[in-house]
Design a binder for these strands. Structure first.
Length: 199
DNA sequence: TAGGCCATCTGGTCCT
DNA sequence: AGGACCAGATGGCCTA
């Protein structure tokens, strides 16, 4: 996995604009409180993915939940077939063989378990989307992967903690970071794996 | 084409 | 017993 390190020295203009925007839209204390205490309340616009995650993905996820409920336990249920259009899933006869008959209790149970697992994963993914809404990213960044989202969230929390402990104005603190270069790698490594690089 | 990321299925384990 | 959670396996999609 390729790791890249964000350096506040790079492209300071763009970074400054970004953080300025953050400061404007998110008064520091309220945002920190929101992020740490109530992840469901904020309607963050920090990330270019925010609208994607909060307004589009979540409703879709809800619909998906409903769909799963409605579909279970039908024959065409296996959305897994969508994702993995194997010969089996494309073959009509074999597909019908996947139909869950009452005399197949194991298959019925297994199928129900699959649906529950899919729901569970959807809820996890919804949580990731929500987390993406609260993690600041740069405009040129592509959508954060799950692992990048977690790592960036950790780094972001560390940065917010530092700002809190410094007692400085958040914007001034970030300005100072950019002037001197952010060298404290133990506290805020903006580390992503998605081949993220400055344009 | 290789590697990264992801969704899905599956069986095992733990909990209620 | 049934559901939640977890990790491994598998295959598809996308990008460098």
């Amino acid at each position: 996995m390729e790791d890249l390190l964000f350096d506040f020295d790079q492209d300071g203009t763009a970074d400054y604009a970004f953080w300025g925007q953050m400061d404007q839209n998110f008064p520091f204390q309220s945002q920190l409180d929101t992020f740490l205490l109530d992840c469901t309340a904020a309607t963050g616009q920090l990330s270019p993915w925010s609208s994607f995650g909060c307004q589009s993905v979540f409703p879709d996820a809800q619909l998906t939940f409903t769909d799963l409920d409605l579909q279970s336990p039908g024959p065409a249920v296996c959305p897994g077939g969508e994702n993995s259009p194997t010969e089996e899933s494309l073959d009509v006869t074999k597909l019908s063989a996947r139909t869950l008959a009452p005399h197949q209790p194991y298959k019925v149970q297994r199928h129900a378990a699959n649906i529950r697992e899919r729901k569970r994963m959807l809820s996890i993914n919804s949580a990731f989307e929500e987390l993406r809404c609260h993690v600041p990213t740069f405009p040129y960044e592509k959508r954060l992967s799950k692992i990048d989202t977690l790592r960036l969230a950790i780094a972001y929390i560390a940065l917010l903690r530092e700002i809190l402990m410094s007692g400085c104005d958040p914007k001034s603190y970030v300005d100072e970071c950019m002037k001197s270069g952010y060298k404290n790698q133990t506290n805020a490594i903006w580390n992503t794996s998605g081949g993220l690089s400055a344009p």
